[in-house]
Design a protein around this nucleic acid. Structure first.
Lengths: 226, 226
DNA sequence: CGTGCGGTTGATCCGAGTCAAGCCAAGTGG
DNA sequence: CCACTTGGCTTGACTCGGATCAACCGCACG
C-alpha cells in the first residue's frame, strides 16, 4: 500500500463513506498509518495540533485537565471516529490511547487544504462534528445535573447501546474504573460503590471487572434519571 | 425588505461572512424574520426540529432537562450565533429567549438542501460548529471537575472576556442568578454565596445584581482553577 | 515469592444542596 | 398616597451525598 495508508482510509466508515473514488485516492496519498501504544499520546492539550486522523482499531480518550491534575474525559474515539481539530492551531484537549491503536494520520495543514477543495469531505466532517456536539451536550446534562447512581446507570446503558448487542448479552467494558470516573466526573470509589450497588440489587451481573450483563434494563433505565 | 429577511442575513457576522453575493441573495429569499419574546421557546428538546436560524439581536439559551425538571443550560446564543440542528430531525435541546430576540429563521429542510449546494456555507457552518464543540468540551471540564467557587470565577472571567471591555470596566451580566446556576450546574444559593464571597474578598465589585466589575483579575483567574 | 496494579469496602469529612426566612425594588390596585 | 404582591436575591441552619483517607483483596508478573 505504498507510502500512504490506502486500505486504512478506504475503510473508514464515516469520513470516507460517500466520498467519490478520485477523492479517496488523493486522500490515500496524504495519510500515514501510525501506531499508538496503550498510554501513548497523539496530541497534548496545550501544544500546537499538527495532525488530525481517523481511528482504524483500538480506542482513544480525549481529555482536558486542570492545573492540579484533576482530569475529565471529554469523549472516546472508537474505530472509524475522527480525532483532532481541523482549521485551528489548538485542539484544546489531549488524545491518548486507552488500548493499542492504529490510526490514519494526516498533517493538519494538508488536510485543511484538501478539505476546503472537497466539499463532499467537508460535508461528511460536518455531519460528524454535529453528532459529536450533540453527544457532548447530552454529557453536559449528566455532568451538571445527574447524581452519581444516575451517572453510572447512564454510562452502562450507553456502552451497551453503542455495542449494539442483544439485551441480556455480556457487554465488554473498554474502561477501567478510574476511566469511568474520569468520564463521569466522579471518583473511582464512588463508581465502584455504585457498580456493586447495582449488582446487589440484581440490576446487573458482573462476570469480571471489565464486563457486565444487564439483567433488568427497565430498572437500569429508571435509575439513569432520563 | 420583502418576504425574506434581507439585511438580517446580510449582516450575520459568522455564517454569512465570506459568502459570495449571489449565495447571500438566495439565502435572503429563504429566511424569515421572527420575534421571540423573553421566555418564549423556538424549539423543544423532544420535538421535531423544523427550523434553524441565526440570532440578530437579543439572547437565547439552549437547555436540556431531566424528567423531574432539573435543567442544564448547554450554551447561550448571542447575536450572530447560529441555532438549531441542521441535517437532523431532532435538536436534542430547547431553545428559549432570555431577552426579546429577533431571529432570521429558515425551514430546516430548505436550509439543509441549500447548504449542500453551497460549500462556502457548509464551510462556514463547519467552522462554527467546531468552535461550539470546543466550548462545550471546555464546559464539560468545568461541570465535571471544578468546585463551586471555581465555576463562578470562571463564568465571570468568561463573560468579561466575551464582552471584550477593558479590565476594571463594568460588565453587564446577561443572566439572573438562577440562570447562572443552570449554566454552572449549581443551585441559586450556591451562586449567590460565592458572588458575595468574591465581593467581600475585594476580588469583584457588585454595583447591582446584573453587573459587576473585576477589581483583581489575577485573583479571579487564580480562583478559576485553570 | 514479593510487588504492583486495579478494584472493593469502611470510616470520616466537607462542600454543596435543601429548607426556611427575610430583604429590596418594582409594580398594582385601592 | 399607601398597602400589598411579586420576583430576584441574600443569608442562615441543617442535611446529605460524594470526596477523602485508609485498609485490604486478588491477581498477573518479574
Amino acid at each position: 500500500m505504498g507510502r500512504g495508508c490506502g486500505d486504512c482510509a478506504a475503510r473508514e466508515r464515516a469520513i470516507c463513506a460517500a466520498l467519490p473514488e478520485p477523492v479517496l485516492d488523493a486522500m490515500y496519498r496524504m495519510g500515514r498509518t501510525e501506531l499508538l501504544r496503550r498510554g501513548e499520546t497523539l496530541m497534548w492539550e496545550s501544544d500546537e495540533a499538527l495532525v488530525v486522523g481517523t481511528v482504524r482499531s483500538g480506542l482513544l480518550k480525549l481529555t482536558a485537565s486542570l492545573d492540579d491534575g484533576r482530569e475529565q474525559i471529554l469523549g472516546l474515539a472508537f474505530p472509524g471516529d475522527f480525532v483532532g481539530r481541523p482549521f485551528s492551531a489548538r485542539a484544546g484537549h489531549c488524545v491518548t490511547a486507552l488500548a493499542d491503536t492504529r490510526l490514519c494520520v494526516f498533517r493538519r495543514p494538508s488536510f485543511d487544504g484538501f478539505a476546503r477543495e472537497h466539499p463532499a469531505l467537508e460535508h461528511a466532517l460536518l455531519g460528524r462534528v454535529l453528532d459529536e456536539l450533540d453527544r457532548a451536550r447530552r454529557w453536559m446534562l449528566l455532568l451538571g445535573r445527574k447524581s452519581a447512581p444516575e451517572r453510572v446507570a447512564t454510562l452502562l446503558l450507553e456502552i451497551a447501546e453503542r455495542g449494539g448487542g442483544e439485551p441480556g448479552e455480556r457487554v465488554t467494558l473498554p474502561l477501567t474504573r478510574q476511566q469511568m470516573a474520569d468520564l463521569l466526573g466522579l471518583t473511582i470509589e464512588t463508581v465502584s460503590r455504585n457498580m456493586t450497588r447495582l449488582k446487589r440489587s440484581g440490576t446487573i451481573h458482573l462476570p469480571d471487572t471489565r464486563s457486565y450483563v444487564i439483567l433488568d434494563a427497565a430498572a437500569l433505565a429508571l435509575r439513569s434519571g432520563g
